[in-house]
Design a protein around this nucleic acid. Sequence first.
DNA 1: GATGAATGAGGATTCATTCAT
DNA 2: TATGAATGAATCCTCATTCAT
Lengths: 226, 226, 226, 226
Amino acid sequence: MPEMPEKQQAGDERPRRRQARGERRIAQLLEAAAAVFCTTGYTAASTNAIAREAGVSPGTLYQFFPNKEAIAIELGDRLMHEMRETYGEALAPVDPATPLEQAVGAAVDRFIAFNCEHPVFFALMHGPDVPGRITEEHDALHQTLVARIEGLIRSFLPGAPDADVTRTAQMCLGMYKAGLELVLAHEEAERGAYVQELKNALFRYLEPLTRDGAAPAPDLAAPPLR
Amino acid sequence: MPEMPEKQQAGDERPRRRQARGERRIAQLLEAAAAVFCTTGYTAASTNAIAREAGVSPGTLYQFFPNKEAIAIELGDRLMHEMRETYGEALAPVDPATPLEQAVGAAVDRFIAFNCEHPVFFALMHGPDVPGRITEEHDALHQTLVARIEGLIRSFLPGAPDADVTRTAQMCLGMYKAGLELVLAHEEAERGAYVQELKNALFRYLEPLTRDGAAPAPDLAAPPLR
Amino acid sequence: MPEMPEKQQAGDERPRRRQARGERRIAQLLEAAAAVFCTTGYTAASTNAIAREAGVSPGTLYQFFPNKEAIAIELGDRLMHEMRETYGEALAPVDPATPLEQAVGAAVDRFIAFNCEHPVFFALMHGPDVPGRITEEHDALHQTLVARIEGLIRSFLPGAPDADVTRTAQMCLGMYKAGLELVLAHEEAERGAYVQELKNALFRYLEPLTRDGAAPAPDLAAPPLR
Amino acid sequence: MPEMPEKQQAGDERPRRRQARGERRIAQLLEAAAAVFCTTGYTAASTNAIAREAGVSPGTLYQFFPNKEAIAIELGDRLMHEMRETYGEALAPVDPATPLEQAVGAAVDRFIAFNCEHPVFFALMHGPDVPGRITEEHDALHQTLVARIEGLIRSFLPGAPDADVTRTAQMCLGMYKAGLELVLAHEEAERGAYVQELKNALFRYLEPLTRDGAAPAPDLAAPPLR
DNA sequence: GATGAATGAGGATTCATTCAT
DNA sequence: TATGAATGAATCCTCATTCAT
């Protein structure tokens, strides 16, 4: 047992040196996984395909990840990390005085820009195509995004009840995803038009909420508008 | 259904009866496929599983459908057919005088009701989880739905340019899908709240369009950010 | 549903005709499995190897057996069936007047003969090499054999308590197996000598039990022999 | 650790210390191997699992053992060594005057006690479950045990021919193994009963041999049946 | 039409072993 | 020495599809 303590105690350098290669491999594998997820979708992606794409043998992949889901989770984590690094803690750090349309517009632009830089993002967000089968990695990503949107919403609606904010955030995320799908499906001018459409939809959805403090929505349900 | 008679010129009865049996088989298979798509998702569904679920041999399945996609296409077609039968040609046959919120509310309710009666609908709408890989059946379904929504929108905006109507319809469908996902993911009161939220989002998105005829939207595009 | 009853009702011919091929395949696969189990042992045997030995593809094997264990179970069942067919319900149908040594000798001879004709028997009896990991098929085989030996013992010791009979039978089976291993490991004269040795051991083990009715063994434990 | 420079021409200390570390590693690995063999069985045990259990990398394992079999061989050797250390050269150093039942009882008790202290013993004794595939380590263990039993038998039957003694020893070992399996498979009182049963079987098997000097067994072969 | 057998490539995963550090 | 990365064949098993009956 006292086999390696003398070198160990210093810190955590030692294990690192070995992992240099490994760390590179992991990055390589995640990159490959991203590519495969993008082209085939998460469900249809195979670990063998990922390994092949990464130019390593299947065994090597399994040295670093126990299975496909673990890869997706790690990928999602890194994506979230990068998003946080790039855009700060909230999706958009807004001061409440910012006009809503500006905040929404900026958030959408960032969201889309981020996705264009990291196309896997989209693939991971959609995850397996079964509603019931929520896998861990998909959910983690989803929850993180919802939390970020909640933060954004709260900066405009400080007093709103949690449940309402969550619901609104979920709805916004859904609209984001739907809009993103449309944006990605088009090009050039049409793409721009869809970007605008998404901004419109979100702005209009949120705008009424900011008019009266407490009530999260002047629901058009019972005696709704007017 | 009497789609290919030109080859069967001679008899009328024989082919009929044969087709009768075939029709039943096909219905059986589609029902089974629906069940399997719902539980495992389209991508992960296997033809063998569908055949098993239908209580027939794999060979029989392939006597009626050349492959998995064909099953999904036929399933989508029938779904669309049924929707048309149930709800008429437009998603909601509206008279332009109907208040928008009412029209939207009714359309959402129908949409959700239809999906609850035909859960495959959701599975098929989402289809394979890759954006680029638009499969035929998914697309057919999608186009049909878009067309229906376009009809609905046109009844409110008779003079709007095609491109704008299409874009709006696409956006609406995306919001529908996103909202449906949220609705299905919750239960009881919360589900109801999400239904309302979806209605709100759609109404608010569409409402400005109805205020001025020509301009599809008093876009917050032009003078927006500032 | 009323798709095939008219042919079905007659009996069970129809399904059979199809299964003729399948039945043959099953026999073929079991034969191959027997060969593989014999050469590589149960634990190390692979389903692919069995399929290869049978000259079929892996998929075919899985059409008939869900996994390796199922093959072993079926193999064991057939073996037991054959044993019953060949030797009757008891391992040796004895009349209590038969001298014990004769009964033992006959039983051993049959046991060995049976094993020589069906070498898998040995492989299956030993099963996976972990004591705790008793697999179903090994256990089934074991229990059946114990039961048969119990029957044999009871014909000599009608009044013995169940627990004692079982224990004795287990011991006999253990000795049988151990002896068989030695017999198979040798050839010619030496093999014969081991056969005799096994008979001796069993006879001497059982002989004292037959001398006094009730007591299963004049135990050499406390004041043993003398 | 500063142990590498010169090959090892002169010093006594240097090599020693190197071996010291190596010895510890080896012991560590063997211990781990024992644990793994016990839980998964020899055939199913993997070198990676052994290394993991030992807390070392696979590479380290292969620095000391060329393969799995070598581990088993070394493990068996050490086991035999320990047995010799603990119980002396013969399985039981008996003076011919000792009553047989006492000698047998003591030997069985020791055998079982040893196995309880070293559960691998059992796993190694059974080894790969194929009769033909006698692996080296299994055989070594087996031969050693047989030799020890031969010694024991000879102390009672000084004049018996080698072949007979060997055969008897082999048979005894087989019975031992079979009995041990039963003993381990039961607990509490039942376990004790099986221990007794094993003693009975061995004693009764050997007892006739001690009655007349020359003939190894008053075989029930020649004038037996009758 | 219907069946069930057959296929073989491909899925995830593990393994004994080797190699660079 | 020791490590951990790497390998690639082999594990079990499934799948879409075809074929003989």
